[in-house]
Design a protein around this nucleic acid. Sequence first.
DNA 1: CTCGGCAGAATTTTT
DNA 2: TTCTGCCGAG
Length: 758
Amino acid sequence: MTSGNMPMPWLEGLNAAQKDAVLKTDGAVLMLAGAGTGKTRALTTRLAHILITGKAWPSQVLTVTFTNKAAREMRERAEAILSSPTEGWWLGTFHSLALRILRKHAEAVGLRTGFTILDSDDQLRLIKQLMDLEGLDQKRWAPRALLAIISRWKDRGLEHDKITKAQDSEFANGMAKNIYASYQDRLRILNAADFGDLILHCLTLFKKNPEILLSYQEKFRYILVDEYQDTNVAQYLWLRALAGSSGNIACVGDDDQSIYGWRGAEVDNILRFEKDYPGAEVIRLEANYRSTVHILGAADSIINQNANRLGKTLYAATKEQGDKVQVATHWSGEDEARAVVEQVEDLQRKGLPLKEMAILVRASFLMRGFEERFLETGVPYRVIGGPRFYERQEIRDALAYLRVIYQSDDDLAFERIYNTPRRGLGPSTLKTISTYGRAQNVSLYRASQELLTTDDLSTGVSKKLAGFVAQVETWKTAASSTDHVSLAEMVFEESGYTQMWQQAKTADAPARLENLKELLTAMAEFESLQQFLEHVSLVLDALESDTEDKVTLMTLHGAKGLEFKSVWLPAWEEGVFPSQRTLDESGVKGLEEERRLAYVGITRAREHLFISNAGNRRIHGRLADSIPSRFISELSNDHVEVQEGQGIGSYLGFRSIGESTFGSNSFERDDSYNTPGWKRARSFSRSGSATPQRDVEAKGNWMTSESAHDFQIGERVFHQKFGYGEIADFDGNKLFISFTSAGDKKVLASFVQRASEV
DNA sequence: CTCGGCAGAATTTTT
DNA sequence: TTCTGCCGAG
């Protein structure tokens, strides 16, 4: 390299392995990067290095991530190093990059320009329609399961005509394959593609048009891939096609963090990298800059139980031994939540900010107990997860309106909104429209227009439908003379959609209105409605503020890539974690994936880690006995400390953690009136200052907090999470409220407001 | 067409 | 326990 003496300030602070990963730009490179080893930094620096040293132009480097968030982060870091904007770069998620290619060659794969992208909701509705058509009983065969089967086929790069007997599924006696075929037919007619198609269509495009593939192979002189362990077969083939034979491809991944096998990810892709790219360089990043010795030791003791791995040992970059991992057994799930929240408050008292703490659970139903406890004690928390922004009902409805205006033959969008808000048009009218449409081979919207000129509809229905069509026509006209944001505002208003939510008396209505506003903000960043619609389903993300000081509550899956100073991993019980269902469905392979999930959870912690289980847990409303997870016994004794004072004894089968005594049982329901949270809540309600609140609902006028004696028994009140209810009793600053849908709860007075004031 | 009441199911979900 | 989807009454 001629640049041997050139100063390279961007390499500063990297360790030897990281520098290696940056400097070996040519040929295939696999970076095996353990948790917390600075892989994103290495990858971004590599990208910057290629550009700064002039090895390629930005347009000649393909950088692939899995999430928008990761893409955004890489962009920001690259911008910081290069101090130049990254617009136009080929840096993005698999799906957005594939879409970018497809938009240029839509006709080559049987789509027309401006094709729409289906999300899971659209997909499911289509599947249901097709199952109806085939006369399949949806009680016997779950549409969701069928959709999953088809999606997995797509993940494996299989088109419907490639499904062999061996790959066919038991589903409805082999009907899955047929429905897959008709599903693809429908998509083509609708001029739509689902997420899987974005990759799959690219593969078809490359296969059928070698010259197009060649042009991309020549264009992309370097390829960089993040989270390689999560790629599915289709994505793997996509990358291989683009890398061509010369293949300057660098992939970063960690086989130990592969936790999306159930979604089609193939750990095999990473395991066989060296075979795919002969002469590939393998670089191991093993210096962990995140966690203490004990935490890494615990993580290692778990992941070591897996047989199928490339093998890599994380060592702590720090000498800091830190605290041992705290392991505790609780009587019940409620006790566990109580204990965890107490620990949270304890650490907060010692000066640790809440945003440095996280509770990571296996499944979202486990969150409830913690949420309730947080609400009761007044500890601010945020839930991460739940439906993605663009998957929310109100967002999808709003988008459907815009799609009907922009592309009136979008039948899925039409179906979605033609009776939302209620206009007295139901399934039977839809049936008439769609029968007509199918006969005349026109879209639902067109069919509606034509039907209005006939007398096939009753006068009442005809009038309502005519009103709706006329409205859409007005908006279409307005679209040419109004900017897209104002148009959207106008549509939401005139359609009565905003009003529908304003009048809704459900607890989440205010948040939904807030989301609609956020949607408008997001739209403003695009130049036109068309541009916005083309990208919205791939790019739109809820903006979450991580500046507020709140405890994070999320699933283990959601936590990948994040880190916190203190982490709690509750509900380590057989059947819950590892999940019984995974064990049943995927056996040892599933168990190993669960174990990797445990590994991911542990390695999120920088300084404090708490692992716990409960002997009794409410699952589906039923109280179930449970024994501690086998993962607890896999933790190395050297790095673990069994917490005294809240255990319930080893009779539950808590077998292998040394001979530690569990201390005396203390089942005392220690009253919650002494905790910092309660005191805080009390001062809040006096001063009326910021009150803890579930994040999504944090914007509203509820801040005018009340204290308990402002209320009367029997009064109707509103609570942001639980909705409407009636006050049954007081207790200090807490109210016992009987909620209409959420049942009886004890909540802080500062959380509720008079129903009449909502 | 709409609303209310009951039966049945119930992970994880980067796009 | 809690949500969804279906069926029957108004």
